[in-house]
Design a protein around this nucleic acid. Structure first.
Lengths: 259, 259
DNA sequence: CACCTTTTTGTAAAAAACACAATAAGTGCG
DNA sequence: CGCACTTATTGTGTTTTTTACAAAAAGGTG
């Protein structure tokens, strides 16, 4: 099954892949006729959550071209021909953040016929979680601007990205209860208060300090260190760390954090 | 963004959509040159689970063409140009089962580059649950045969359908705890034993009869009737029904079955 | 040292989960 | 009819978990 492409239209499309464009130019396919049947493409969109000190944010890009020029949107790109879906999402993430090794998770696929005004584009949504401070938003070839946005007051988003964001937030809440993804956003050595704040922020509810602590004591892969906080203006907390080895042993048996 | 298609190759492809074929013939695009860049299409695959008397099965079709000729596979089809993803899955389901109004649920999207030997095909997996007896497997234009298969001894499946099936089973277990989907497979009036057996079958574990019953008493949308089983050769059970009105009231508040 | 803040431990009550037993209500059969 | 058999239904005590809240501890600060 093969595509031919109307480059005039392509140039107007803002969901463009750089590889895609360059390839088109090489092969000089400008004036090839159009098959009306398959006007479709697939893309990935990444919902990159940033966590820092009780604040959950999401990374948006500002669109520099029509449609939805000037709107904020989720970063995304077309999937390359020889690229897995997960790979495409990782690439988008890496291009945008210069961070590799960020674990991603597929959450849902959106394919409403009219979700893209210029054609049929099905998109697979991924989520990632990073330390907000690890990533300095900066303009790129992709967008005129990128910026961390608080989830409270969210601007009007392009396409159906509002739906995608909602779905991603649900997915994040799910994952947070199944996997210790706080390892990606808490410091190497952390306090239990920090851990508790993480859960409270993501899940949007509070926990009793004493009871939370008791739960954590049963979790084998959270290891108490012989170290303390320093220079805090109150009783210093003990520090803990994530014991990856113990986690891998236990997680094979369907182990999960249970709060 | 537009495709052109090499019909010679299309004819060999077994993931063909009937609409797709006919459209091609109409427009006489046989000898159009090929753009190598976008060799891709998207499809839906349906994991149709059948439940009947403590037996969970899955509906497979037998492929009549290469690749994987003779292999069992999940029913699926390409997504039509003016069709939503959910719509495509519903259509596949309806064509195959003559049942409409079956609720479906998207679970995951599979897009490994080499998952289809003849080209890039990304597929969105859906699950559905029906009463096994409501559906008489029969050959169709799609497949040389269709058949309910027990999940215990599963034949070798085409493509990556084994992965899809696994993922779907996880999805089913998830959903069963969040939504009362047993309404689709239990009779209008059912006993609590039937309900318990349903959960035991799907989740693969057993529950204490007395305790299960106590849980159900707290669930407002499961209504006890003034009716009894008849002609059973033991103490007759009270009959219950699903109270849709009460369910809709409660479910808005994030209500879910908790066993 | 008294005071402030946050950590850490403790404890008691309430709720939920769990295991198991006793009783009930039909059919079938002598 | 009465007894056996089967499954439904209710009950009960124990254990475990959850929840709420209080007290004590360990820093820093002035």
């Amino acid at each position: 099954m093969f595509f031919l492409v109307d480059l005039a239209k392509i140039k107007d499309m803002t969901i463009t892949s750089r590889a895609f464009k360059s390839r088109i130019e090489q092969e000089d396919l400008y004036s090839i006729p159009i098959d009306e049947f398959f006007k479709s493409a697939f893309s990935v969109d990444c919902v990159i959550f940033g966590y820092h000190e009780k604040q959950l944010k999401v990374l948006l890009i500002e669109r520099g071209t029509e449609p939805f020029e000037g709107f904020w949107a989720l970063p995304g790109d077309l999937v390359y021909p020889l690229e897995d879906l997960d790979g495409a999402a990782s690439r988008v993430l890496k291009d945008l953040t210069s961070l590799s090794e960020i674990p991603i998770k597929q959450v849902h696929t959106f394919g409403r016929v009219d979700r893209h005004p210029l054609g049929r584009v099905i998109t697979v949504a991924y989520i990632a979680l990073v330390e907000t401070q690890d990533l300095k938003p900066q303009a790129s070839s992709w967008a005129s601007a990128t910026k961390w946005h608080s989830l409270k007051r969210m601007p009007k988003l392009a396409f159906d990205h509002k739906d995608i964001l909602h779905s991603a937030l649900d997915g994040l809440k799910d994952i947070v209860l199944r996997e210790p993804i706080w390892t990606k956003v808490l410091p190497e050595k952390f306090t239990l208060t920090q851990l508790q704040e993480f859960y409270e922020t993501i899940l949007g509810r509070t926990f009793d300090k004493g009871n939370f602590r008791k739960k954590v004591q049963d979790v084998k892969y959270i290891q108490k260190l012989d170290e303390m906080q320093r220079n805090v203006n109150h009783r210093p907390s003990a520090l803990y760390r994530f014991d990856e080895k113990k986690y891998n042993e236990n997680s094979k048996k369907g182990f999960l954090m249970d709060i």
